[in-house]
Structure formats: structure tokens, C-alpha cells
Amino acid sequence: MSSDIVIAILMTMAGAATPILLAALGELVVEKSGVLNLGVEGMMLVGAVITVAVTLTTGNHLLAVACAAAAAALAALIFGVLTLTLSANQVATGLALTILGTGFSALFGRPYTGKSVPTVGSPFPAELATDPVWRLLFGHSVFVYLALIMVVAVWWFLQRTRSGLILRAVGENDLSAHSMGYSVIGVRYAAVAFGGAMAGIAGACFPLALTPQWVERLTTGKGWIALALVVFAAWRPFRLAAGAYFFGLMMIFEVYAKSSSSFRVLPSEFWAALPYLATVVVLVLISLRREGSSSAPACLGKPFIAAG
């Protein structure tokens, strides 16, 4: 493999990892507050279709991403009302949100099918990215940098701020947090809305950076990978970033392996199965270290009903 190919693989890997990372970061915060929202895929699709609609109507990418975040956050708040205020089952409601998002996006996206969406490029001047090695640093779409900034921001928020401490307290022991006077429901609403907004931005990556068009089910299950990744990363932002890039590399490795003669020793089905094989191996390794399972927020998925 020449260095050009290695750079190309790394570039494409960052692109593929980014939507998963963005969505998983949002879900990490949601789960840290003790809520399990399985509707990530649905919210991503809402974000994706809104992005396409706004981009094609106004041509303004920033507005499109903002609308995508807002719309997906709104979808998340529907989930919030049902599970937090009305104490509905979170697993069932989350799955319903995915179905709702899939259906809504398919219906809403009808007029936009079959149109090319202008993509967003790198935020840096093009001259910086002419050299292949510099391209690795400066040649990505703006989402790649945003996702990495958000990793640090989420870590800093959870570990270094008072609000982050409260959010974790709500997720670990909702009754104690409640008795100390914190609004458990209020914190969880905020977390759910943030998770929705992040999923919406993740959805926006697809039409603006990866597949410049709208088709039904555009995100092809990446929301589920994001959900798995949160567990995989044991609810830690930096491990989440590493996990997302690892998944991204596995997914991308397949497409390069299939088209390169160096990998012809094994059939293409093997490379297609590789991400899943790698997942199993990594999960086994993590569980051997006996720290994966104990790191789940204690109140994850349990409804909170304040007594009195």
C-alpha cells in the first residue's frame, strides 16, 4: 500500500466515523442522566431530511444544520414528554421514536428525492490542504472538527463542571439528587434535548458530507451503531471517540480492501464481516477487564416518579 492510499483511508475513515461519534456523544449525555433513548436512528433521519430541505430551499448550510438540530431536539422532546412526564417505558418509546423518525423523514423527504445537495468542505483555506499529509489535518469537512471539539466539550462538561456533576448525580441516584433539591426531570429534559440536537447534527453529516442527496433511510442503521458505541466505550467520551474511529476504520477498510489487489487472499465477504468480528473481539476484551459492565449509570432506563 502506498502512502497515498493510507492517507485516503484515514481521510475517509474520519468522514465515516463522524456522524456516529456525534450521535453517540449526544446519547452518552442522555444516558449519563439516566435515560435510555433508543430513537437515535429516527432523530438522525429527521436531522438529515430537514438539512436537505433547508439546504435546497435557502442554500444556507449553517441554517440547515441549526434547523436539523432543532427539529431532532423537538423529536427528542416528544420522547421526553412521554417517558419523563408520563413515565412511559423508555425502550418501547425510543423504538417508537425511530419508527416515527423513519416514517416522517420518508414522507417529508418526498419532494427532495433525486436532487443533488451542495456539500460543505473544510473550514480551512484550500491551500493548506494541497499537500497530502497536510490534507489529513486540514482537509476534512467541518463536521469532523466539530465532532472532535464536542468530545472535549462533553468530557469537560461532565467531569469539570458543577452542572455536569448534577447531571451525573441524577443518572446515578435520582432520589438523592431529588432530595438535595435538584430537578431530576428538568435535568433529564435538558439532556434528552441535547441528545436530540446532536443526533440531528449527525444526520446532517450525511447529505452535507457523505452522500449528497436525500433517499429514504439515508442513515442506513448508523444510529444503532452509535447506541452500541456508548456501551462499547463504557460511557467515556474519549474512549467513545477512539471507538467511533475504530468502527470507521473497520467500515472503510472493507471498501479499500475489496478494491485493492493486496487483499485478494480473502473473499470480500470476510472484509464485510470484519467490523462485526472486530466488535465481538473488542467487547470480549473489555469484559475480560471487568470494568465495562459496572460503568453503566445506575438509574439508566428507570423512570423517576417523585414521591409527594
Partner: peptide, 25 residues
């Protein structure tokens, strides 16, 4: 002629990634 399969009739993300990979090569 490099022949590659995306192992699906519909997976736009994979088609896009595969196309980029081929062009890179």
C-alpha cells in the same frame, strides 16, 4: 477492471465510500 460488491441493492453510504476508495486508487 476492478469488480467490487457492496453486498446490498441499497446502501448509499457504502456506495459513496466504495466510489471514493476506487477513485483514490
Amino acid at each position: 477492471v476492478k469488480v467490487v460488491y457492496i453486498d446490498s441493492w441499497f446502501d448509499p453510504a457504502k456506495e459513496a465510500e466504495q466510489a471514493r476508495a476506487l477513485i483514490d486508487q
